[in-house]
Every structure is written in structure tokens, then in C-alpha cells.
């Protein structure tokens, strides 16, 4: 049995509140995220991207509809099954402030009961891969926003999950670091054939890293369009000069502009 896709059908979510009318974050989202690919999600701020991630990750129960993990039997038939191993890199970092960088990165392994020496070694490697060597024993409060974000990245990646959820993982980084880590992620994904769901505000990033780009509407979020990124891999950063890249950019930008305008008006 091979994991083939995350499938979402007719999913809606409303946040209930005792003092305010409920907030509808998602309505009737239907979408499929193929395994072994990177699917980028773009959409206006507040359209429900993070909420969709929480629901896919199984941390929030949708008010309607649900998430299925589809497995293939090799003959084309798909059957829903258990969730594969997943890890999340958070938009708001969510690092434990009383733990040092290395203890934060090793937290997941600690929960699994991995021995201290082993988890420390793996955590150190992960810290190195996000260029934070020398900061192992700092506390999150002593790091800049971009450094915290990289700790979050290391913490998620070190779990080597089947599905990696990235919520705006490069948002707090400067242009150079962002480029560097994007390239790293790109080659990692090409090598490991991981399933990645990437939420981003950057259209360039969505195209550069994605095999597909899902564009969401303004709140309440729906899927406005789903595009295939038919650019060859491996991709270097110069893929941005490709004519096809420009076409995709304009198309997504056009879709988003309408949605942003709508979200500003209501």
C-alpha cells in the first residue's frame, strides 16, 4: 500500500464564539494534495490557510467534511487509511521558551523516547543545516525572528515525516537567507520525494518550490484555482527568468488581486 494523496471534500469550518457571531473560516473546500509533491497554497491574509493546515494535520476537527489519506494498491484503486507521519513548521514558531535551541529541536525525539545521545546528535545536525551552529544553547528569547523560524524548521525536519506542513516558513527571513533555505528545501524535496504542503504569501516562492499551486479565495476560504507548475526539476533560482515562470506568476497574481480586493471591501 502506497500513500497517494490527501483528499479533502466539502470541508467547511466555523469558529464558534460565546461573545461574537461565529467566524466562517472555510466553506466547501474540495481539493487533493498528491503524495511526493510540493503543493503551495496562496491566498489573501485571513482566508483560512492556517486553519486548513490545522485540520489536515488533525489538530482541529472541521465543523463539516473531513480529511482522508488515500492509499493505492498498485492497480489504480484508492482506499482511505491511517494518517502517515506528519510534522509542522509553524507560522508563529511555537518554540518552548524555557528550552534551549537544541532541546527544542530534540523535543519530538524526546517525546518518542529516543536516547539522549542520539537525539542530541540528530538535533545538532538539523541545527547545522539551518545555519544555526553556535546557538545550540541559546533560548528562543535570545534569537531574532528569522532565527526562531529556522529553529522551527529544524524541529520539523528532524522528525523526517512523510508529510511536512510548512506555514509561511520563510516569512521572517531576510532575502538572502530566504533564498538559501528555499534552495535547500527544494533540493531536499527533490531527493527525498516528500509530501510537502507549503503555505506562503510569496507567489515566487509558491512557484519556485511547488509542483502545484492552490489559490484560495478571500474569507470564507474556498479553492479559487489549482495550477500545475510545469517547470523542469531540479530547479535553481534562475528558473525565475523562465518565460513560463512569468506566465504562472501573472496568472496567480491576477487571481489573487481580485480576491484581495474582495477581502478589502468586506
Amino acid at each position: 500500500m502506497q500513500f497517494e494523496a490527501i483528499s479533502i471534500e466539502g470541508l467547511s469550518h466555523r469558529f464558534l464564539s460565546r461573545t461574537r457571531p461565529p467566524t466562517t473560516a472555510l466553506t466547501d473546500v474540495t481539493c487533493r494534495f498528491p503524495a511526493g509533491k510540493v503543493t503551495s497554497i496562496v491566498g489573501p491574509s485571513g482566508c483560512g490557510k492556517s486553519t486548513l493546515l490545522l485540520i489536515m494535520r488533525g489538530l482541529v476537527k472541521a465543523s463539516q467534511g473531513d480529511v482522508k489519506f488515500l492509499y493505492g494498491n498498485g492497480a489504480g484503486a484508492l482506499t482511505p487509511g491511517d494518517a502517515p507521519r506528519m510534522a509542522t513548521v509553524w507560522q508563529s514558531f511555537n518554540l518552548l521558551p524555557w528550552r534551549t535551541v537544541v532541546d527544542n529541536v530534540a523535543f519530538g525525539m524526546e517525546l518518542q523516547g529516543v536516547s539522549k545521545a542520539e537525539r542530541r546528535e540528530k538535533a545538532m545536525d538539523a541545527i547545522k543545516s539551518v545555519e544555526l551552529s553556535g546557538f545550540e544553547n541559546h533560548y528562543p528569547g535570545q534569537l531574532s525572528g528569522g532565527m526562531k523560524q529556522r529553529v522551527g524548521l529544524a524541529r520539523g525536519m528532524v522528525m523526517s515525516p512523510d508529510i511536512l506542513f510548512l506555514d509561511e516558513p520563510f516569512g521572517a527571513l531576510d532575502a538572502q537567507t530566504r533564498l538559501y533555505l528555499q534552495e535547500q528545501l527544494s533540493s531536499l524535496v527533490e531527493k527525498s520525494a516528500k509530501t510537502v504542503i507549503l503555505i506562503t504569501h510569496s507567489i515566487e516562492e509558491a512557484i519556485f518550490l511547488g509542483d502545484h499551486v492552490v489559490v484560495m479565495t478571500a474569507r470564507p476560504g474556498k479553492i479559487a484555482a489549482s495550477l500545475d507548475v510545469d517547470l523542469p526539476r531540479p530547479r535553481g533560482i534562475d528558473v525565475q527568468n523562465d518565460k513560463r515562470f512569468g506566465e504562472l506568476f501573472s496568472e496567480i497574481y491576477g487571481l489573487l488581486r481580485d480576491e484581495v480586493r474582495k477581502s478589502m471591501m468586506n
Binding site: 490545522l54 494535520r57 489538530l59 506528519m86 510534522a87 509542522t88 509553524w90 508563529s92 511555537n94 518554540l95 518552548l96 524555557w98 523535543f107 519530538g108 524526546e110 517525546l111 518518542q112 524541529r155 522528525m159
Partner: peptide, 29 residues
Amino acid sequence: CDEGLILAARDLGANTVQIQRKVVLPAAI
């Protein structure tokens, strides 16, 4: 205790006891 920290711990596979012991209690110290 920050809800996000609990979500992050659950994401990393923490069970209820681990969440109390490793997230909620230290946050309350």
C-alpha cells in the same frame, strides 16, 4: 499556557501526560 505550544507538542506526537508534564506545567512555573 500558550495554545500554540500545546499544538506544537501534539504535532510532535506528545500524549496527554507528556503535554501536561512537558508543556503546561513548565509554562505555569
